[in-house]
Nucleic acid binder design. Structure first.
Length: 472
DNA sequence: GCAACTGTTGCTTA
DNA sequence: CTAAGCAACAGTTG
């Protein structure tokens, strides 16, 4: 779990234990851990005394005798244990251990084996590849100009910006969310649009969050050092990370989570000025598209899951993925929809797998749409919202209902009215009806529909306009 | 039992 | 140059 605060804490604990000891020998179980020349590492690390420890960003540095320096990055799960007993602590997750001159051992335990070590000469250290590009730690940033300058041409989102170690070093996924939450900044806004006020807030809050965590880490991470592995996060009070679905502690709005660059991002849509998102769902031929269209006319961004599915089937890269997963659906290199339909009917397991595959692709597209449209309300029509388990991806869910489905289908000159109505039964809309935030009943005139949509819109719009109690 | 998700970073590809 | 996607790996959770 090492972000900057943990590395700092490990540094403090290990400093007390190992400074003054000499590394007599090293035993490596996972060679790729060593990023600099392996033979030189093994040769040069021996008989080096540990003079001191320091930290840069998330890197831990052992300063050794003869001007050597050992650079360690823990990545996701790396841990150091300083122990007297070796045998009982060796397991398949131990990547390496050092034998110390007092008979103790320093064991590097790394379940996922992402951790890395480098051995340099001290004079190489400032210019070595890992450290060269490292940005300032929050407390070393003199003013907002530093961030404004660094982000000036960056098209990435603020969430990505805080994870960019070449600008600010030390924040990871957890604290990046915390900093944005405390600063009340939209995680999806472009870094280049950051203003001076916001930059100031980020610097102050990053400083505070990390310092608080170091403080808390010092008391709880103690268990880190003696044998047993650490479980969970430090006891610092996190208000964003892990709070998806819970009420915001500031304003009570429901905390949401979206993915940016593969990293989960939790935020308060209201405090952090992320315009609400709305899902429109309902059975076939109840007027969902009309409702979507009305939202569009009210100035909302709109999208449709059905259209996304169509675009997927038209996309070369998607078809390639589909073929890799379900090769038997392809005849002469082309997707045979007949086979898909037949198999969907007779093979339940296939149907589940196929639907999951399509829905996860659609979900990605919806996520992309949402994170790129956070300044105004975004509305997406998702007919099978509940089947695809996407209801939690939106701030609000609006159901559209009508007892005139048959009429509407007939109006569309649909040849298979009965079949359509039968398919309808698969829609788990009824089962999930209580999850709806709003219901629009489409039984009357266009005027009635417009007025209902208008009511829903203004209710949501005004909820968004609520200001937060506190601001930093 | 499988699929999705997890604290990080850097390399490859377009 | 940027941007995205993936790879490295193994465990936990639904």
């Amino acid at each position: 779990m090492p972000e900057l605060p943990e590395v700092e804490t490990i540094k403090r604990i290990l400093s007390k234990d190992v400074v003054g000891l000499t590394i007599k020998d090293v035993t490596v179980f996972y060679k790729r851990l060593i990023q600099t020349d392996y033979d030189e590492f093994v040769l040069n690390i021996k008989n080096k005394k540990i003079l001191s420890l320091s930290r840069k960003g998330k890197y831990l540095i052992f300063h050794l005798s003869d001007d050597f320096a050992l650079l360690v990055h823990f990545r996701m799960e790396g841990k150091f244990f300083h122990l007297k007993d070796l045998e009982s602590n060796l397991n398949k997750h131990v990547s390496l251990y050092f034998t110390m001159d007092d008979g103790s051992y320093m064991i590097f335990n790394d379940v996922r084996k992402f951790g890395v070590m480098c051995l340099y000469k001290e004079e190489e250290l400032p210019d070595c590849k890992p450290l060269k590009e490292l940005g300032l730690e929050p407390w070393d940033i003199k003013g907002p100009e530093y961030l404004l300058e660094a982000y000036k041409h960056k098209g990435y989102m603020m969430k990505e910006a805080l994870l960019d170690q070449s600008v600010i070093s030390g924040l990871g996924n957890i604290y990046a969310d915390e900093v944005l939450y405390r600063s009340k900044i939209n995680p999806f806004m472009k870094a280049k649009d950051l203003n001076e006020e916001e930059a100031k807030k980020i610097i102050v809050n990053a400083d505070e969050v990390l310092k608080e965590a170091i403080k808390a880490g010092g008391s709880t991470i103690r268990t880190y050092h003696p044998a047993q592995g650490v479980s969970g996060l430090m006891q610092v009070s996190l208000k964003a990370y892990g709070h998806e679905g819970k009420p915001c502690e500031e304003c009570g709005a429901r905390m949401e989570k979206r993915y940016v660059g593969g990293r989960g991002t939790t935020y308060c849509p209201r405090c952090q000025h992320v315009a609400p998102s709305i899902a429109i769902t309902g059975k076939i031929a109840v007027g969902k598209s009309q409702v979507l269209e009305i939202f569009s006319s009210l100035g909302c961004y709109t999208a449709s899951a059905d259209e996304m599915v169509h675009s997927l089937y038209a996309s070369e890269s998607f078809l390639k993925l589909l073929k890799a997963r379900f090769p038997f659906l392809f005849v002469d290199g082309k997707l045979d929809k007949g086979i898909v339909i037949t198999k969907m009917g007779e093979d339940k397991k296939f149907r589940r797998g196929y639907e999951t595959f399509i829905w996860s692709a659609v979900r990605d597209l919806i996520n992309t749409f949402l994170i790129n449209h956070t300044d105004k309300i975004a509305v997406v029509e998702v007919p099978l919202l509940f089947d695809a388990k996407m209801e939690d991806d939106f701030t609000f869910v609006v159901g559209v209902e009508s007892d005139k489905q048959r009429e509407y289908l007939e109006e569309r000159e649909d040849h298979d009215v009965e079949k359509r109505l039968a398919i309808n039964k698969r829609n788990s809309y009824d089962l999930n009806r209580k999850k709806l935030d709003y219901v629009i009943v489409n039984n009357g005139t266009r005027e009635s529909l417009m007025s209902q949509v208008g009511t829903v819109f203004s209710s949501i719009y005004n909820a968004k306009a609520n200001t937060c109690k506190k601001s930093h």
